[in-house]
Simulated assay, not measured.
Amino acid sequence: MRPVPSVNVHAVKMRQSDKELFSFFIRGAHILELADIARLKHSAGSEIQGFQRPEIKAHVKAIADYLSGGDVLFPNAIILAIAADAKFLQKRGTKNASVDSASEVGVLSIPVRAGRKSAWIVDGQQRALALAGSGVPDLYVPVVAFVSSDITVHREQFILVNKARPLDKRLIDELLPTVGTVLPRDLSTRRLPSLLCAALADTPGSPFHQLVKRPSHAYHSAVVNDSTLINLMRRSLQDPRGALAAHVDTDGTADTDSMYRLLVSFWAAVKDVFPQAWGLPPDRSRLMHSVGLTAMGILMDQVMTRPGNFGGDYVAAKTILTRIAPYCRWTEGRWEALDRDWNDLQSTNKDQRLLSNYLIQLERDVSRASAA
């Protein structure tokens, strides 16, 4: 049996937690021979695969042009995850009492296989693409690699590396539900709304099924940005009086099943009470616009926390929404009490407050009148 060819590099090895780390230099043109780019996409079963953004061609070309310009400095390390079958052979005689003993020096051998790569790019895909297309075969670049074939670990590191960079927050939000490890506090608080958003978008029977636009894909029927839903759920969780916050125990444990049922009950009622406005593009329906969804999300907190409706009663929600329906102008006409045309309301804090305050007061008024 012929041995699997490999790329051999001088490397420094150390360990962090339960992972082996390596630092080395390699020809930039070889990186894509070893490493795959796990693009963010959805499988046929709507499971998230990969994590990397699409290639930014203009960015890649700019880097490639720079590299092709001659005498260049390229000190930015590319981060790789490598498979466990990479072999490290420590060099003899490298121990030195005056050197920190946390690291070892040796030769790292990374297999080069046809079809199935031995590594995955965690950070630096645009640079790797530029290096491959630059026509500069002998430029050596720094690499930091850790041993792991677990896509969840790759995603976690991708998020952490890009957290302080101008990475699309929607991309982070979509990836968060797939990361099960401990994250910084600000990301952990974002994880639950992202998980609920994914469930609403992908579950048949959800009123938002195939209506949500996400970085990885968008159904032809998608009309709602995931960030709008995530933000309204985050607000409901952070407000002690919020409908979702009511399903978080004092120890911080969240009853996600109850939250999901509540969301489905309320928004299914919205869909059924306003069928002519549901599922249309935002320029044809202000209900599907961020200003309408945000205002209705705030109304949800009032409607679904009412005594007797804690469990998210669809019938109760529909009854309440039916009472306010005659006063709503989602697709045509004019909001008389606001003195605004239906399509004049925009995604500004001022308009969101204006509409949400009106809907809250309207619901209170019609509910009192109905009880009288």
Rank of each mutant, 00 (worst) to 15 (best):
R2Y: 12
P3I: 12
R15S: 11
K19H: 15
L21E: 00
F25Y: 15
G28Q: 06
H30P: 04
L32T: 01
E33R: 13
I37W: 03
A38P: 05
L40W: 08
I48G: 05
Q49L: 14
F51I: 09
Q52K: 07
A58T: 09
Y66I: 09
V72S: 06
A77I: 03
F88H: 00
T94V: 08
D100R: 13
D100C: 10
G106T: 06
G106F: 09
L108Y: 06
R116P: 08
G124K: 03
L129Q: 12
L131M: 05
A132I: 08
G133H: 10
S149W: 00
D150S: 03
R165F: 07
P166I: 05
E174G: 00
L175K: 05
T181R: 11
S194N: 07
L196S: 02
A198N: 02
A198C: 04
L200F: 07
L200T: 05
A201I: 07
D202P: 03
P204N: 04
Q210K: 15
L211R: 11
A218M: 07
D226L: 14
D226V: 13
H247D: 11
T253N: 01
S258E: 07
R261I: 05
D272K: 09
F274N: 08
W278C: 06
P282V: 06
D283C: 10
R284F: 08
R286H: 06
S290D: 13
T294D: 15
R306I: 11
G311T: 12
D313I: 10
D313G: 10
A317Y: 02
I324A: 09
I324S: 02
G333P: 02
D341Y: 12
Q346R: 15
R353I: 13
R353P: 02
N357C: 10
V366I: 03
S367E: 10
S367D: 09
